[in-house]
Amino acid sequence: MAVGARRGSSYVFLVPAFLLYTAFVVYPLFTGLTYSFFSWKGTLRAGFAGWDNYAGLLSGAFLDQLLPALGHNVLLFAGTMAVQNTLGLVFALALSRARRGKRALQTMFALPYLVNPLVIGYLWTLLLSPAFGPVNALLKPLGLAMPWLGDPDTALPTVVLITTWQWVGFPMLLFSAALGGIPQEYAEAARTDGAGSWQVFRRITLPLLKPAMATVTILSFIGSMGTFALVYALGGSNGAPAGATDVLGLLFYRTAFASGDVNAMGTSSALAVFMFTFIFGSTLLLERVLRRKA
């Protein structure tokens, strides 16, 4: 009885958080959902539209933008995994062996992610500018000058590299923490049994890093799917050049704020619901698969 009463009263303490969560998370999400089922005249709600706004997303002209944008999000995720998180792991391993300056180096690697992505994007457009940029000025004598952000073939890989530059400290910190949690005894025991350092890494370190990898993967996925500020600063709202850096976030921005379409509110709400459902669903799925393996 006493326990039950205590538990009952403990729920009272959840009320403020619950109210805040409802007011600032549940309510806006729900509003967005309802908006997507109405047709709009500017900011004025007109009639019930059923699935019309969703059908609009799948109409030829819009789908021509939606699919490439989604594809670029997925490519960004793949690029982030391949470049940023691999480098993050390499740095973490290297740092775990460092005898001195470990903390200083960790801070230095992590520093860029304290800077706003818009600022980072702006800095890199200046650095990579074909007219004034120092990067090409340095590379030109070597014959290695590249169009970087000016060519659709190199633009997205450049975005991946800049993202890596900014965020590599993040997987590095997570991997460092995970590495610190692996007892030395395992590796020592393996070495006593004659395992080489590659075998120790492959058979002991890597399997024990799996939970950290799952976390990094899921966070990278959410980050890549929701990216906006950096690509906006690098290629503007249309994902220049020629839409090569267009992503869902930019498409949403254009639809909601820059299209001038009378029903922009309806279409963009439907797009927002699609994005939320897609990211939420994929994350759940990813989580399932990764946790099971881990």
């Binding site: 457009t125 500018s129 074909p130 007219a131 004034f132 169009p147 970087w148 952000l149 000016g150 060519d151 220049a240 050049p241 020629a242």
Partner: peptide, 16 residues
């Protein structure tokens, strides 16, 4: 036009 024109931004052009 400037070299690599598709990579040149509006502000770059103004500064040029």
């Amino acid at each position: 036009f400037p070299e690599n024109v598709a990579g040149v931004s509006y502000t770059d052009a103004q500064i040029l």
